[in-house]
Amino acid sequence: MLIDWFTVVAQAINFLLLVWLLKRFLYKPILQAIDDREKRIATQLQEAGATKEDAEKERRDFQKKNAEFDQQRDALFSQATAKAQDEGRQQLDKARKEYKTLRAKLQESLREEQHSLSREITDRARQEVFAISRKVLADLADATLEEQIAAVFIRRLLELEGKERKKLVEAFNSAGRPAIVRSAFPLSAAQQAAIGKALKDTLVPKAKVQFETNPEQLSGIELSMNGYKIAWSITDYLASLEKSIAVLLNGKPKAEAEPKTKAGPNQDTDEKND
């Protein structure tokens, strides 16, 4: 007989025992380990995916920030460039203005210097001319010259006509005080008498005259009374000379020459001397 039934039963039991043993020692732990590992790998993959996602996000953020930074830098750079150009332009303008101002000042001071120089020259020339003239006249104009001056003055008084004469008479009459006759040199008694006689004859018979001497008068005689004045002097000639000198110096008649004439002693006279 090929089949031994005891052995059959024993082998069946052996087999079932082996099934249990292998289930206990092989399948269960192995499958468990595989499952655990798969879970672990899945988790790690998930984590890696999340990390990759994060990294991607970080990268995008970084790129964005980089771009923003570049933009800002460019903007700042162009701003700075524009500002610098602006500043440079302003500085240039300022410098130009300052240059203009300085130039104007320089020109002004040059002009003033020239002006004062010319004025000084004029003054000196005038003074020199006056000094020379005075010396010449002092040398030459002895009694004869002064007498001549007095004579000229008397003739003028006598030649006064119409309106002038009337004005003078009115001034005489309205003034209570005596008329004042100023001269650069002391008038002699005869001259005084002659002037007084001329006044009395031609104008007012009862005119009172007071004589004064003024060296500044420079070889002239002046009659002043109650704001009215009649005079003769060489100052006018000198003013004319001064004008000619100014023309010579500047090449053209200067405006300043005018006030000189006006500042002359006969400024407020009604009548011009010859």
Partner: peptide, 16 residues
Amino acid sequence: LTIGSWLITRRLTREI
């Protein structure tokens, strides 16, 4: 079979 399985599976690792 049993001892072989036991020897191997007693030190199973769950690492990669």
